[in-house]
């Protein structure tokens, strides 16, 4: 009886998809992949770069193995791996993802010289005084006044927002964008809650809180109901 194939190549309109069996050994898989790719790549040497999606089912690949796979496919001239999709996660990855999704609430005053850092969203019940810093992987919501530095989307999320009841920051940072307060301080009357986000021009802008309803609909995590 003929052995079932461990590597399946399927063409889609976006490029190729490689389905790799998750039951065989890794070395076996590599050998078969090599054979398969060598015969197919001969045919169209002149054609443009083809992106490849790799689906590995319930197999877990370490970072080194992934790198090896990338390297392996790249050698086949006009193929390049776009993504490797696996159904499994390690525990630490899952925990990190959970932490990044969570809203952490903290009741304190972040004073000069103090740094408060959370992986996900930050809900601060208190103030950030000048010289104090809050950093979050996600959004930052300050219930009191923000007079220090706030850095949202510290991991590179440009969709992150910063909001505060009293927005008087020394500096605002979202992802790798930085904005500072104007050097000439005008006397502003007490206004409503405000928020800061990155607009289409890649600039950090401050606006009324309510604009977020349209700009960042994904802030709503409520499911179902009405």
């Amino acid at each position: 009886m003929k052995k079932t194939q461990n590597v399946l190549i399927k063409g889609t309109k976006d490029g190729l998809t490689l389905h790799l069996d998750d039951q065989c050994s890794y070395t076996e898989l590599k050998r078969e992949l090599n054979d398969k790719l060598s015969e197919s790549s001969r045919l169209n040497e002149e054609s443009p770069l083809i992106t490849v999606k790799v689906k590995i089912g319930n197999r877990y690949l370490t970072d080194e193995q992934k790198e090896e796979l990338h390297e392996f496919v790249r050698q086949k001239k006009n193929l390049v791996i776009d993504s490797i999709e696996s159904n499994v996660l390690t525990k630490s990855e899952a925990e990190r993802m959970k932490a990044e999704k969570e809203i952490v609430s903290v009741a304190k005053i972040v004073r000069s010289g103090q740094v408060l850092e959370v992986p996900g969203d930050l809900l601060l019940i208190g103030d950030v005084n000048p010289g104090g810093t809050v950093v979050a992987g996600g959004n930052i919501f300050v219930m009191g006044s923000l007079k220090g530095i706030a850095h949202a989307g510290a991991g590179g999320n440009t969709n992150a927002i910063i909001s505060a009841s009293e927005m008087m920051p020394t500096q605002l940072r979202i992802s790798h964008h930085i904005n500072r307060s104007p050097d000439i301080k005008e006397d502003v009357e007490k206004k409503d809650m405000e928020c800061a986000y990155i607009d289409q021009n890649d600039q950090i802008v401050i606006d009324r809180l309510q604009v977020l309803i349209h700009l960042r609909p994904n802030l709503t995590t409520l499911e179902g109901g009405s």
Partner: peptide, 12 residues
């Protein structure tokens, strides 16, 4: 006041 804020943070 800034330094007082710092020291209060440390005292807390």
């Amino acid at each position: 006041v800034r330094d007082a804020d710092r020291i209060i943070g440390l005292l807390e």
